[in-house]
Design a protein around this nucleic acid. Structure first.
Length: 284
DNA sequence: AACCAGGACACAA
DNA sequence: TTGTGTCATGGT
């Protein structure tokens, strides 16, 4: 697969279950344990216990997406060009909508490393075990909404998710009760799909856009978090303070039908630069 | 030891 | 419409 930066894609804050093991990345997708490795630049090899059936994985990794066509759809401005050049091969995954929704409900005002820990604990305590290679430590599927709804809010809180426990528990109840057809949202227009998500407790514009973009195929959705606010202000507004609604209006108008991809490049690039700056300070 | 983290929400003004 | 406090916990 050309033009696929596995590390950037799995480590850019869109999914929270990937662990780096040596040169490989291990995770659980659609209830299957899988190990991915970037053997050569641009190439990805996968090890699973289900040879011959790859649909669940190729769909997740979005291997059929023509990245160059998306990049050509971007506006031609300097900040975005810089971000694309710095993160060439960064992709968007196609995640399970429930896992994506639940994970991002847990994400609010949490660092990505910590979201990973909370999600890991949640899976260990509530997820069903999945088949792993002989001698491998046990791995668990992401717990279903019904499983979480069957437990208590306190059990969730014990996974160190703080005030998000009530949100997650109530969202799980609504989804388990069938009040919201998550997968079906992908067949609706962007605006009503977003409104349906924002109707859930603990889900505002930002988290709704993450679910739309990372799991439901809405490439135009543009999640704006603290990092993207910083990036947009610095790169497009001369550092001026701009309200969230105005930033959203600017983003959808300026970045076009693949705005969500542009968002991911700006987000990841901003975090890379911040990481390098921090490392430079530590070395000085 | 402060400050901040892939926010949402209720409630000012 | 825009601003502020609150929520729970841990990293830097």
């Amino acid at each position: 697969m050309r033009d696929y930066d596995l590390a950037a894609t799995l480590n850019s804050g869109q999914a929270f279950r990937w662990r780096k093991v040596g040169a490989a990345w291990e995770g659980v997708v659609a209830g299957h344990w899988v190990s991915l490795c970037a053997t050569e630049p641009g190439w990805v090899t996968a090890t699973t216990l289900r040879p011959g059936d790859w649909g669940w994985l190729t769909d997740y990794l979005q291997l059929d997406v023509d990245l160059s066509a998306i990049l050509q759809g971007f506006p031609d401005d300097r900040p975005l060009r810089d971000a694309v050049e710095a993160c060439r091969g960064l992709r968007l995954l196609r995640q399970d909508p429930w896992e994506c929704l639940a994970s991002f409900v847990l994400s609010s005002t949490k660092q990505i490393v910590q979201i990973r820990r909370i999600v890991a604990t949640l899976c260990e305590r509530f997820g069903s075990p999945v088949a792993v290679p002989a001698g491998h430590a046990p791995e668990f599927a992401f717990p279903t909404a019904a499983r979480l709804a069957g437990g208590s809010e306190e059990e969730l809180r014990a996974c160190k998710m703080g005030f998000r426990a009530r949100y997650l528990w109530r969202v799980a109840q609504r989804v388990a009760a069938g009040e919201l057809d998550l997968a079906g949202l992908g067949n609706r227009p962007l605006t009503p799909a977003r409104a349906a998500l924002m109707n859930l407790p603990g889900v505002g514009r930002k988290i709704a856009d993450c679910v739309l973009l990372f799991s439901l195929g809405f490439a135009a959705a543009f999640p704006i978090d603290v990092w993207v606010i910083k990036a947009l202000r610095a790169l497009y507004f001369q550092g001026r303070r701009v309200s969230l609604p105005r930033l959203q209006a600017f983003a959808t108008a300026h970045f076009g039908p693949y705005a969500g991809y542009a968002q991911q490049y700006l987000f990841h690039h901003m975090r890379l630069k911040a990481g390098r700056a921090k490392a430079a300070v530590a070395a000085a």
